[in-house]
Design a protein around this nucleic acid. Structure first.
Lengths: 211, 211
DNA sequence: CTTTATTTGTGATTTTTTTCACACCAACAG
DNA sequence: CTGTTGGTGTGAAAAAAATCACAAATAAAG
């Protein structure tokens, strides 16, 4: 029907969405493509092209209405829809994530936590229901969990991935440094390992020095 | 002198580097571009092209030597060089990061933690030296800290960024959902907010359903 | 009302990145 | 020794993305 939105555009629109959020909190009502570009380190042409994928949102000659633009992004990218999420691996990192309130505010409801250590599940106090890892498939299916965060030890990462996928998960945030591969190709994965990003930054620093 | 390595290639080489690490732990000695492609969900032409930027590493007609390939990536992207790092914001998330041993193993030494709450600094027990946030500029400069992780409340993110940059930081991993902007353009930033990635995944899921 | 300074939206162009095609090489079986 | 299979490396082609250029619109000032 309509043309596909390029992946890089999606990423930039997500960034823009967060920036608009900030602007709204600061009572800014209107913004121009060049202001956005300066702030988000991209050029204004690109900003306008990206926004162009949303349909007609701008006021020709008078910038964008911040609230209207944010709503347009949300509508197009499905941010209004509430989605259930879970966290697998309730160590330091996992439990830190379980306790972020930010998710709720933005329409993500963390409905379950999983850990292989049954002791931990019984003794920990959280507002989120905890389950042993062998129940992943069942719980993901039962609660219609669409998003999963993996915060387990490296060795377990692939196994957990397989279980989440079997349960019908739609997207995974992988916090381990190992590369996971979902068996079904319509499951989207994001790798967010800080180690990985240290590497990426190191590479940029190195290559920047060499030229 | 030589041609620039494209950013997407750098990202893929980082991914490959981690995969090679895994292969080495499993005593795999040799691997082909098509095997890599299948595992990392990219096509084999792309894998070969990426590896091509490293110079001559492959054995024509007989795949890649895993160890040799890993070394070649490390050499090219500067992974052998040890780099000092710091974490700003010692909340749940920040302290989880301070305690990862993985960093050390891969050549990143976390030499300092910062927090605005002086009480916390005095009472917390960590193997890493802690300092109050107002010392960021000084400490970053003194210890030649190249990489910084920002794990502070949203409101403080930009201020902390400015301080890190003033201290001479080279790369920043931003864990807050707000968009930060370094005053100097040769400072590289990676945004790793889980919320941001939930959004990105939501967008992919939504757009995938609509077509 | 007219002029000027901004600003959006978009087709055209350029640049970048990915994909393809194929020459060339090595190992191995017979 | 020879054919066959499965590799790499790389120039060429295709696809994707970023950049540019400019028409059309608005707001504000005089």
């Amino acid at each position: 029907m309509q043309t596909d939105i390029p992946k890089p555009t999606i990423a930039r629109l997500c960034l823009l969405y967060r920036y608009l959020d900030e602007l709204i909190r600061n009572d800014v009502q209107t913004i121009s493509s060049s202001q956005i570009g300066r702030r988000l380190s991209m050029n204004s042409h690109n900003v306008r092209k990206d926004i162009g994928y949303l349909g007609d949102v701008g006021n020709l000659g008078a910038g964008y209405d911040v609230i209207k633009l944010k709503k347009a992004i949300a509508a197009k990218l499905g941010f209004n829809q509430q989605r259930n999420a879970c966290v697998v691996g309730i160590g330091r990192l996992g439990s830190a994530i379980l306790n972020f309130e930010q998710f709720q505010v933005h329409g993500y409801k963390i409905v379950a936590g999983f850990d292989a250590n049954i002791n931990k599940i019984e003794t920990m106090r959280t507002s989120v229901a905890l389950f042993p890892s062998h129940m992943i498939v069942e719980i993901v299916r039962r609660f219609d969990i669409q998003l999963g965060v993996i915060a387990v030890p490296e060795k377990a990462a692939q196994k957990v991935t397989d279980q989440l996928v079997e349960g019908g998960i739609k997207g995974i945030v992988n916090l381990t440094p190992v590369v996971i591969k979902p068996k079904q190709s319509d499951v989207f994965v994001r790798n967010l390992s800080i180690l990985g990003d240290f590497h990426y930054l190191s590479a940029l620093i190195t290559l920047n020095q060499n030229k």
